[in-house]
Simulated assay, not measured.
Amino acid sequence: MSSTLRSVLLASALLSTQAAATEFSFISGNPADAFGNSYSQTVGGLTITASAWSTTGHGNRYQTAELEIFSGYGMGVCNRDEGLDCSSSGNKHALDNSGAADLILFSFSSAVQLGQLSLQQFGGDSDLSLWAGSGSLNLEGQKTNDLGWAMAVTNTSRVDNIKTVNLSGFSGTYDWLAVSARVSQLNDFAKLRALQVEAVTSPVPEADNWAMLLAGLGLVGFAVRRRIR
Rank of each mutant, 00 (worst) to 15 (best):
G90Q: 06
N91E: 10
G115H: 05
L214N: 14
F70T: 14
T49P: 03
F70A: 05
L195N: 05
T154Y: 06
G216E: 07
A101R: 12
A11R: 06
T201S: 13
D188C: 08
V224D: 07
V200D: 01
I104K: 03
G169E: 10
L46E: 00
A94F: 04
F222D: 14
V220T: 12
F26P: 02
A13Q: 11
K92E: 13
K143P: 00
L95W: 09
A215Y: 13
Q113P: 01
F26C: 01
L10M: 10
L192H: 03
Q116E: 11
Q113R: 15
S129H: 11
A178Y: 07
A13K: 13
T173A: 08
V204L: 15
F24R: 04
Y174Q: 12
D33V: 03
F106S: 03
L219W: 11
A199T: 15
Q121R: 12
S88A: 15
N161D: 10
Q185V: 05
T49S: 04
L14W: 02
L130P: 06
A132D: 05
N97T: 04
S3Y: 06
N209T: 14
L128R: 07
D188P: 05
L213Y: 15
Q196N: 04
S202C: 09
Q121Y: 08
S87T: 13
A34P: 01
L128F: 06
L195C: 09
S107Y: 02
L67W: 08
L5R: 13
S171R: 07
E68L: 07
L117C: 02
D96T: 02
I69C: 09
W53Y: 06
A178L: 12
A20H: 00
L147V: 07
S25I: 01
W53H: 04
A223S: 14
N91W: 13
N30Q: 06
D85H: 12
Q196E: 11
C86M: 04
E23L: 04
A50C: 09
V179N: 03
K92Q: 13
A215N: 14
F222V: 13
N79Q: 03
R193H: 00
F170Q: 09
R6F: 03
S16C: 05
W53Q: 05
K143W: 08
T64K: 10
S180F: 05
S157T: 15
V112I: 14
S51K: 01
A13T: 00
A65H: 05
T42E: 04
C78S: 12
K92L: 07
L119D: 04
H58T: 08
R182Y: 09
N166H: 02
G90A: 09
A211R: 15
L5N: 08
G83P: 13
S129K: 12
G76Y: 08
L9F: 02
A11T: 09
R227T: 15
T49M: 00
A132N: 05
P205Q: 15
L103A: 14
N60Q: 10
T55I: 03
N145Q: 12
L117W: 02
F70N: 12
I48S: 02
E140H: 15
M151E: 12
S16E: 10
E206I: 15
G45F: 03
M151S: 12
T173M: 05
G99N: 08
D160T: 10
E23W: 00
D127I: 13
L186E: 12
T201D: 02
L103C: 07
S71C: 01
K163P: 00
S110R: 15
A13I: 00
